[in-house]
Design a protein around this nucleic acid. Sequence first.
DNA 1: CGGTTAATCAACCCATAAGTTGAATATGCT
DNA 2: AGCATATTCAACTTATGGGTTGATTAACCG
Lengths: 107, 107
Amino acid sequence: MDRLSEVFSALADPTRRAILARLAEGEATVNELAEPFPISLQAVSKHLKVLERAGLITRGIHAQWRPCRLDAAPLRGVAEWVTEYRRFWEERYDELGTYLTKIQKEN
Amino acid sequence: MDRLSEVFSALADPTRRAILARLAEGEATVNELAEPFPISLQAVSKHLKVLERAGLITRGIHAQWRPCRLDAAPLRGVAEWVTEYRRFWEERYDELGTYLTKIQKEN
DNA sequence: CGGTTAATCAACCCATAAGTTGAATATGCT
DNA sequence: AGCATATTCAACTTATGGGTTGATTAACCG
């Protein structure tokens, strides 16, 4: 799977996005990350593997802990991709502008 | 599934992103959209359904054709989400700035 | 050394995604 | 009416995702 698909796919899960949001506040261990969720530690561990494969987190080794850190680099690619479409969701304003210009000329 | 997950999920497929790119150039029918891909028309029809459910396209009815149009509105949400992380992939620069400030004070 | 804690591995379940082929629906053309 | 075109529906296969439980590995603590 290409990288962008992998990243989008990793982001397509609320639990994983919540994990990223948590990591935005700083490093955390698997247990710390798992704590807020009503799912098993193993399930969280899988989510972390997905995020890691997508390049969105990196993991250290500190005794028996595996501290996770956010790596937002792949999000840059997402931002670039989505920016290509910006003009389309801003079009509304363009259309409004066009409309206003038009009725202005008509009156 | 929440909207953002649905959108990310829809974007996590190269075929669907290619379809969106094609629609950025203007309306197209299912056959026209399917033409470049080595998969069946039905498969493309399914992809379109996914995009439609995510709110990324709308479909018209014109005789036996179902012209598809891009609706980039949901991408705004994606852009907003990803912007929350911008500082992290730009952090490199911040760190450089901090470093420069620091050595400046030291000397 | 033995027990506790942190995390992963492994096997399994169930639902869904992505593709296929074949049939059905609906519109236009002559 | 009858045929061609555009698209969808339906049934099926195969693979994958997200979850579970139970066992395993590895490090620390007393």
